[in-house]
C-alpha cells in the first residue's frame, strides 16, 4: 500500500514536467518574452534596452529551453523553463506580472472558493442520492418516467441560465439575497446562499440521473435476488444492499473531485463576485497574466493527480475486493 502510494507519487513527477512543458510551449512559442515586454510597456517606441530591462526584471532574460552558452547541465537548468517550473515543484509560485505574490493570493482566495464548493458538494450529494433513491423505489412507474424526463430537461438547460435566473428571481424580484458580492468572515453567509442554491440545482440533472443508473445497475445484480430470496423487505434490500454497493462508485467519484474543490468554480465565482480562486483565474486570463495562469495550471494538475491517488486509496477502504499493488 505505501509502496503503491510512493510509486504513484513518483509517477506524478514526469506528468507534472509534461504539464509544465505543454503550458510553457503554449505561452512562449507564440508569444515570446520580447512580445510580452512590448505589450506590457506599450507598443510604440520601445527601445531594445527597455525590453531587455523588463525581461530581466521579470525573470525572462534567459533562453527559453536550451542555453547554448551554458556548461553541462547548466545548458538545461540555466533557462526560463527550468527556473520557472523548478520553483513550482516546491510550490513557489513567484509573483504575478503586477508584482503581487501569487502564493499569498492563492492562500487567501482558496477559502471563499471552498466556502461555496464544499456546501454545493455536500448538499448536492445528499439531495441527489435521496432523489435517485426515491425514483428507484418507484422504478418502472409513471413517477420514474416523469422524473427522468424532468432530469433530462434540467440537464439540457445551460448553467448560465440557472445563474442568471437565480440572480433575477431570488435577487432582483424578491430581494431575498444579495445578487453578488462577498464579505469577510462569517458575514459572508448571505452572499453564499444564492451561489450554493444555484450550484446544487445546476447539478441535479446529471447527478441524479447518474445515481439512478448506478442504483438500477445494482438492482439487476444476482445478489439482490439472493437478498430477496432470504425474505428481506424492499427497504432492507434498497438500503442494505443496493445503496451500500452503489455508494462505492459514488464515493470514489466524489473523492476524485475533492482536491479540485480548491480551484473553485470559474463561472459562478465571477458571476457572483466571490473573490475565490476561480475568479482569480478568470481575471488573470482576461488580464493576460501568464504567471498566474501557469501557477493555476500547475496547481490544478497537482490536485488532479492527488485526486486520482486518493480515489485509489478510497477504493481499498470501501471495497474489500480491491487491494493496491
Amino acid at each position: 500500500m505505501i509502496a503503491y502510494i510512493v510509486r504513484r507519487l513518483l509517477y506524478a513527477i514526469p506528468i507534472l514536467v509534461g504539464v509544465n512543458l505543454i503550458t510553457f510551449l503554449l505561452f512562449f512559442v507564440v508569444n515570446s518574452p520580447d512580445d510580452m515586454a512590448r505589450m506590457q510597456l506599450g507598443e510604440k517606441r520601445v527601445t531594445e534596452e527597455a525590453v531587455q530591462a523588463w525581461k530581466d526584471d521579470h525573470g525572462y532574460g534567459k533562453p527559453l529551453l536550451y542555453n547554448a552558452g551554458g556548461e553541462g547541465l547548466a545548458r538545461f537548468t540555466d533557462t526560463i523553463f527550468f527556473e520557472k517550473s523548478a520553483k513550482l515543484f516546491v510550490f513557489q509560485f513567484g509573483s504575478s506580472d503586477e508584482g503581487r505574490d501569487i502564493g499569498y493570493d492563492i492562500s487567501q482566495r482558496m477559502w471563499p472558493s471552498l466556502a461555496i464548493a464544499v456546501p454545493v458538494l455536500i448538499v448536492g450529494l445528499a439531495f441527489n442520492i435521496s432523489f435517485a433513491l426515491f425514483i428507484v423505489f418507484f422504478r418502472a412507474t409513471y413517477v420514474d418516467l416523469a422524473s427522468v424526463v424532468l432530469l433530462v430537461a434540467m440537464l439540457s438547460i445551460s448553467s448560465l441560465f440557472y445563474i442568471i435566473g437565480g440572480q433575477f428571481v431570488l435577487g432582483k424580484l424578491f430581494h431575498l439575497v444579495p445578487i453578488s458580492g462577498y464579505d469577510t468572515g462569517l458575514n459572508a453567509w448571505k452572499f453564499l446562499i444564492l451561489p450554493v442554491i444555484v450550484g446544487v440545482i445546476g447539478g441535479i440533472g446529471s447527478g441524479t440521473r447518474w445515481y439512478r443508473t448506478l442504483f438500477l445497475e445494482e438492482i439487476a445484480q444476482d445478489y439482490v435476488r439472493t437478498a430477496r430470496a432470504k425474505g428481506l423487505g424492499e427497504r432492507r434490500v434498497l438500503f442494505g444492499h443496493v445503496l451500500r454497493n452503489a455508494l462505492i462508485p459514488i464515493l470514489t467519484g466524489v473523492v476524485v473531485v475533492l482536491p479540485l474543490l480548491f480551484m473553485g468554480s470559474l463561472i459562478s465565482e465571477s458571476f457572483f463576485g466571490i473573490p475565490g480562486l476561480g475568479s482569480y483565474t478568470i481575471d488573470a486570463i482576461s488580464n493576460q497574466d501568464f504567471a498566474i495562469v501557469r501557477s493555476m495550471v500547475f496547481l490544478g494538475a497537482v490536485l488532479y493527480i492527488l485526486g486520482l491517488i486518493l480515489t485509489d486509496i478510497s477504493y481499498t477502504l470501501v471495497d474489500p475486493r480491491v487491494r493496491l499493488q
Binding site: 505543454i22 503550458t23 486570463i285 495550471v297 490544478g300
Partner: peptide, 14 residues
C-alpha cells in the same frame, strides 16, 4: 491533468 478551461483559455489567448 491540465484543467480543461485553463488549457482552452491559454490556447485562445495565444
Amino acid at each position: 491533468s491540465i484543467p480543461g478551461v485553463l488549457l482552452i483559455a491559454a490556447a485562445i489567448l495565444m
